[in-house]
Structure formats: C-alpha cells, structure tokens
Write a protein that binds this DNA or RNA. Structure first.
Lengths: 256, 256
DNA sequence: CGCTCATTTGACAGAAATCAAAAGCGGTGG
DNA sequence: CCACCGCTTTTGATTTCTGTCAAATGAGCG
C-alpha cells in the first residue's frame, strides 16, 4: 500500500469533512470515541491503489474527501470501472475474507482506515453502530441499483446524457465538481475519458463521439476537454431517454 | 396484493425449505420464536406481483421456494428485469419508506411475509438478528456486483454464454433448474425469452439469435425452447469472453 | 381443429467496437 | 520563449453487432 501519510487521528473527527448523514454521524458519543481511537488517517495521491482485489481483507476505510474508483479486474488483465465512491462511503466491506475489487484513488484522497478486525469488533460491541453500518450498506445498495438502472436499456449517448444530467442534480455524488456561479452550470470532470467511458460501459472513442454529439445537439458546450458547460439541461434530459425520476434517492426514514 | 393463500405459520419454520446459510438459520432459538410469531406464509402464482414499485413499504418477505423477478419500471411504462431472487433472499428491504422496484413471481412461489414495522422491531430488539440481516444484505450486494461484472464489457452472445455457464455451476442461484442425470447437464429454463433477454439487457430477438448461435458453434443443444443441453461447457466458457472466475474466486495480485 | 401466444427467422438500419491516425495539451529543457 | 516529447483526446474509415420491424413457424390449449 502506497500510503503517503498515515497517523492516528483521535480528535480529528471534529474536522471531518464528511457530510452529516454518514456512518460516523450516526454514532453516539461513546461510539465516536471508539471510532476515533481505532481510526488512522491516510492520504493517497491520484492513481494509487488503496486496496487490491484478491488480497486478504485486512483493512476497511471510510472516504473523507476525493473520489475513489471501484475497479474490477478479469483474470486476463482487463479492467472495468464498476463505480465511484464519495466522501462518507466505505472502502471494502466488513465480514468478508478477501477484497472482491480494487479501489484506486481517482483524485488525491483522504481516508480513515481501520483494521478490519478492530472495526468488526466495534460493530459487534455496539448494536447502534452495527445498525448505522447496516443503513450505510443499504444506502450503498440503493446507489448501485440506481446506477444499474441508469446504464441498462440505454444507448451510449443516452448513458452519457443521463450521466451529465445526474451530475447536474447530485453535486458531490459524481466524478464532476459542479460550478453554479455562472449562467449555466459548469462541470469540471475529474476522470479521464478512458475511466468515464469504462464507468459508462463503452469505449473512450464512443464516449468522445457521444459527448460531441450532445454538443452538436445544443445540450452542452465543451469549454475544454474536462470542462463541460450544460447550456440546456432540458435538452440533455430529453436525450437521456427514459426518465430518471425513479432513480433519485428518497429521503431516508428516520430510524434510530 | 393478489395473495393466493396466507396464514400464520408459527411452527412451520421446521419445514422451511430454505437452505441453511440464510437469515433464519442464523437466528437463535429465542429469535426464531420471534420470527415465527410474526411471519405469515403466503403463496403467489406465476406472474402475480408481490410488491409494487412506488408503494409505501409496509411488508418485507423472505422467499421460501420459487423464483422472483425484480422489475424496474420507468415512468414511461417500460420495464426491465434487474435481477432474480431465490430461496432465502429478501423481498423488499428494511428501513426504506417506499419500494424502489416491483417484485413479480417468476414461478409459483411460497414466501414468508412480515409487517415491515414488526420485522424492524425484531431487528432493533435483537443485535444478533440485526447482524444476521446485515450479513444477508452484504451477501446480496456481492451477488449484485457479480451480476454487474457478468453483464458489463461483454457482447450479447458472451452474456448468454456466460449466463448458461453460470447456470451450470450454480444450481439454485439461477432461473434454470439443473438436471445432471444424463451425459450432459440439461437446463430447464423457467423464464420466457422476453424475461431472460431483459435480464441480460438485450432484446428477445437478439437473445434468440445468440442462443442459436451458441448451438451452431457446438456449445449446446436446444432440445426444446426451454430445454437446453450443455453439450460442451468448455466451448461455452470460451464463448463467454473474459473469464468469470474472478466473480467467485480470487485473481492474482496486481502492481501499483 | 382453430385459436392464441411465444419463439424463431429475415431484412435492414442504426449503433458501437475496432483500428489507425491526427490533433491538442502539458511538461521539460535548451 | 520555443521546440520537443509523451500523453490524452479527437476524428476518420471500416467492420461487427444489435435493435427494429415484419412475418413465419411452432407450441399449448380449449
């Protein structure tokens, strides 16, 4: 593991940039202490691997800032980007013996790392924490399902349009950073064409053609390769094919 | 809800056909009593809907026998089969306010139904049960991920070949029933061409052509529309494209 | 037997992958 | 400041794959 820096963090949780609905936020004061005692802070630079598919599962992490790619590698070496993780998401999962995927820093990232065994100990010791972890897991599953619905039954161009539409509506839950200061929203893409294409299950060439196709249709403007201005979101939405409404996350019912 | 029959089941858990690794099997004696008290047995005929996407989430179920389709419906009425559920799997999920999908009986089925609020009460009252539910959920997520890997980055014919390969290796975890009594394994498909095609994200016509293409290549023999003899599994596996092993077992470590 | 529905086949147009090459971008060193 | 290098992105030409529309065949059933 190519850790750039790593140290105990005890009271750094105060300064945690992760939004409020996450695992830690649901923890009680005492549980928070337990978390803080076991957590190590770690940073990785863009491109570095955090956990490797096939390795014995020894660590589990929570993303603090940045974006992580979940990458699946077939035996013949091909890789595909299965999904992205955002602040608050878990890297790896509890109660598994071996990582099923690799996790690679898509940007410079900042994470909390736990020994998996210690983390599992925490969960087993606190029903409230385990409940929080369950809720996180369920939410993660919902996200995966939404993603599946977004990809399936759509043409390549529709997938690209759907992705950008999603970016515009869900700041912080996509690869892109959203700039709303101007007349039109502007997306700053953080992934390469290759990674974005893989994420949307197409080739980079097709992604590129679709992107420029959307520009030709007046849905967006390509300021620079990684800078996309969404000049006409209604048009973009039309070009995304079947409506996306069913996919947005519903407010979660409050359960302690 | 088109329930065919439904009644309290108390001590029927003894005769539960669900395999041992499931949620209930992990419950302690006392928890089992709690489950049995709240469970209602219900049967549905093939084609009936068990839970409807968009409805308020009032029930949660565990499949006892048969196969259920998880169906997503876009606002314009199109449907796609997202996945299948098998004995031991949960229908719906705890701690959500609204069903995100519809669940439709793909065969005649037999399920345990709970009031969702009661079921959640059980979980909240027993850390061991909640832990069991967490494990079920995590396992479900792994299955979804495997499925995603099977579908992505493959041509239509590869997906069909990969699906049948999977059927041959994982009896009870697919639509097909497996008959190993003869020289070659024989699959009895329980879903229609339309549903199978939707499950594999293609049109029925494409599915059909791929199936007959595999037959032409000598990988299998179509005894009857729903009766497939896998005459050459090695060939079938080749035609499935990238190896599938990574989905169950571990590939080798890569370098950063 | 005649009906209905599911499956299969055919023809074709459109979509997407592939292969190849050009253009653009960001750094580095002269 | 500019030329050069390596990389990513873009474009082009072509082949392959897949969806669509239409029609034929086959299976199940009263």
């Amino acid at each position: 593991m190519n850790v750039v820096s790593m140290h105990r963090m005890s009271c750094e949780c105060q300064a945690c940039p992760v939004p409020g609905s996450s695992f830690c936020a649901r923890a009680s004061g005492q549980d928070k202490d337990g978390i803080a005692q076991l957590a190590h802070r770690a940073r990785f630079k863009q491109g570095q691997s955090v956990l490797m598919q096939g390795d014995e599962s020894e660590k589990i992490g929570i993303l603090r800032s940045g974006v992580i790619k979940t990458v699946f590698m077939t035996e013949d070496g091909d890789t595909q980007v299965l999904g992205l993780l955002f602040p608050g998401d878990f890297i790896g999962r509890a109660f598994e013996s071996e990582y099923r995927f690799s996790y690679e820093a898509a940007t410079d990232i900042d994470i909390c790392l736990f020994q998996k065994s210690s983390f599992e100990g925490l969960l087993m010791g606190s029903p409230a924490l385990e409940h929080a972890y369950l809720l996180s897991t369920l939410r993660q599953m919902d996200k995966m399902n939404s993603w599946t619905c977004l990809l399936r039954g759509r043409t390549a161009r529709e997938r690209v349009a759907a992705y950008f539409t999603f970016c515009a509506l869900h700041d912080g839950e996509t690869d892109a950073t959203l700039d709303l200061s101007g007349t039109h929203p502007i997306l700053e893409l953080r992934l390469s064409r290759t990674d974005l294409a893989s994420l949307l299950d197409m080739t980079p060439e097709t992604f590129c053609r679709c992107l420029h196709g959307l520009a030709d249709k007046g849905a967006l403007h390509i300021c620079a390769p990684h800078r996309i201005e969404l000049t006409n979101i209604a048009r973009l939405r039309e070009l995304a094919g079947p409506p996306l409404e069913g996919l947005v996350e519903k407010p979660q019912r409050a359960v302690i």
